[in-house]
Amino acid sequence: MKRLVVPVLIAALAAGIAATGVAANPLSKTLRKTGLSPEDFDIMRQAASVLYVPAPQPGKSVTWSNAKSGSHGSAQLDRVDGQCVVVDHRVHPKGAEKAEQLKTRLCQSGDGRWLLMP
């Protein structure tokens, strides 16, 4: 399995780009490298949220898919570190047979929102 190092900020920006249509070179390059679309990132993020909302559940996993792109994957809550969680993603961009690994780190803010962190 190939391990990709993708800044967590990229995932947050990808969701924003899907909504606004605005693109920056670093993000577009990162999205090309992963093979996932901004919509894929958003679906992946939404699916993973059930692992830590309303309370983190280490070891729990979920699957997701995007019929439009053919991308699919799974997410597992790897660990809880104080107010933060680390989610391990296995993604199959555009239906690829071989999974790519992504990790995201999210921390709960004082107002209860979960924010992607580096």
Rank of each mutant, 00 (worst) to 15 (best):
M1R: 05
L4G: 02
V5L: 13
V6Y: 03
A18E: 15
A19T: 14
T20A: 00
V22Y: 14
N25S: 15
N25D: 12
K29Q: 11
T30K: 14
T30M: 15
R32S: 13
K33H: 09
L36H: 02
E39S: 13
E39H: 11
E39L: 10
E39A: 14
D40V: 01
I43T: 02
R45T: 12
A48L: 08
A48G: 08
A48W: 05
A48R: 05
V50Y: 06
L51P: 01
A55S: 11
Q57D: 12
K60S: 06
S61K: 08
W64C: 01
N66H: 03
S69C: 05
H72F: 07
L77E: 01
D81S: 06
G82L: 03
C84D: 02
C84K: 02
V86H: 02
V87N: 01
H89R: 04
V91C: 02
H92A: 01
G95C: 05
E97R: 10
A99M: 04
A99G: 01
E100D: 15
L102H: 04
K103G: 08
T104W: 11
S109R: 14
S109L: 15
S109W: 12
G110Q: 09
G112N: 07
R113Q: 09
W114E: 02
L116I: 12
L116C: 11
M117R: 11
P118I: 10
P118Q: 14
